[in-house]
Design a protein around this nucleic acid. Sequence first.
DNA 1: TTTGATGCAAAGACTTTGCATGCTT
DNA 2: AAGCATGCAAAGTCTTTGCATCAAA
Lengths: 152, 152
Amino acid sequence: MKTDPHSHTHHYTAEELRALFSRKGLRTTRQREIVLCELTRCNSHPTAEELLAAVREIDPDISQATIYNTLEAFVGCGIARRISSTLAGGACRYDADMGEHVHLVLEDGRVMDVPMDLSKQILDAVPESVLQELSQRVGFELSGIKIELLGH
Amino acid sequence: MKTDPHSHTHHYTAEELRALFSRKGLRTTRQREIVLCELTRCNSHPTAEELLAAVREIDPDISQATIYNTLEAFVGCGIARRISSTLAGGACRYDADMGEHVHLVLEDGRVMDVPMDLSKQILDAVPESVLQELSQRVGFELSGIKIELLGH
DNA sequence: TTTGATGCAAAGACTTTGCATGCTT
DNA sequence: AAGCATGCAAAGTCTTTGCATCAAA
């Protein structure tokens, strides 16, 4: 898998990780440090299974349950995002890049990041006024927007 | 699954169904007629399981495998769409309303349609030029856009 | 010390598959 | 008649759970 020259993945220091987890109300554990590091390091969008494999190259004793628990915790507190699994046979994919961006989902299940400049143009184009209108009309608070372009 | 008396969804005649399937290269079967009718009738966004239940109220002998086969076929030829299952514990949901529209996905897994006027405003706001630029840059043809607003 | 996190294995949920039979074209 | 579609049940894949143990706060 190739490196995307437009992606700029942040590398956390141990200190930053500790601060981040603490701020989110999560305990700092060796497993979580490794999971988040690997999730940001491989700037693909791994499935739980792929992430487990990556993580086990660093610590072979980390369990599958921990991967799922951890990803759930990360998603729950906004450290990571779950990406589409709407293509047949799909496992969920995960993303730790919290800069809002658009995903390009290929028919075979691969997921790529849309380069930041284009992502911004797309996201900024969505009229704030429409979102407010919608929020009022349906009575739900909007907490995010997810845009996927489908490609082949 | 409940019937929504206020639904504006189109109701297919037997003729229309036959024509639609034929045009898409699918054979017309009793099962497919029922599945598509139910999928359009209940304007919620059922999971395969929910749809199976609805369909079985009409014909109790329709099998689970047929539901999955049929939905796969419908999605493959553009008769139906698969909607996000990115929330934990999620089964895929399906939608037969082919007018492009935006979905509002709640944290508990429920999916609602964003009203057509607002959906249009959001979708129309995405700059065509950016999509073309992206298509060129990544070398994939874009075949669709999926926008989900997250709410709670 | 207290409480949340981990690891293990089993269970659960969701989807796909193989194959014999039936139905559409 | 030919070939796709169906039904059944089993298998497969992905995810969650119960519980004893361990570690962070």
